[in-house]
Amino acid sequence: MSGRSLDYATEAFDFIDGLDHLATPEDVVDAVAKSFTLFGFENFIITGLPNPKERFEHVVLLKKWPKGWYDIYAKEDYVRSDPIIRLCRTTAQPFEWSEAPYNRDTEPKAAEIMDRATDFRMKQGFCLPIHGINGYEACFSMSGIDLDLSPRTKPALHLMAMYAFERARQLLKPRPYVGSGLLTPREREALVWAAAGKSAADTGEILGITERTVTAHIVSACQKLEAVNKTQAVARALQYKLIGL
């Protein structure tokens, strides 16, 4: 038994050390595919979690997904209803797909996603959520038919997935402010001052514009962010890194 777990450790450290020598994102895909096959994985995706205005296809970093499934997933906008993606937003711990809750009766789309995935040999899965500084969110989700998931293999997979994600992120250098074009400079400014505790009147004074104009900028930002009020708009703008503090 200890011999097996030692093998997983060696595999994990060799994999991590090898990542430094990979020059392109495609090399990372190949390296992940080769090593993760040992645990039964056939498919995987490394992707950012899109904000309400971003398209799924624009936040994907790396993938080895069946072509048919990717097309369906993008066309049906499954990312908005996927219980795996939903759980990623609220936990930092890796989880098995079967641990992601959804209600078959009230969430038919979630059920449809999980059912249709099995048509593409994505029956079982393991997912690592990534939570960075300033609300950056991503995940590494992997799947197959017959997975070797146990208390002995999971720590190795956890570590390997985290380093593979980082290598992919480095090689792809995603834009630091995803979707920053969503808000105008004035809307962002109004939210930054709101985040600093200023009222619309205070902000108007600071920016040299009327309180009414400030309110108009905030209302517009709320609409774009699908926020019900200023507080939620500020929270979302921070989460999507549209503003900083």
Binding site: A92, Q93, I130, H131, G132, I133, Y136, H158, L159, M162, F165, E166, R169
Partner: peptide
Amino acid sequence: VEMWWLPRWQQV
């Protein structure tokens, strides 16, 4: 550290 620190460190 808890594992969730790793991507934060790497990001910075």
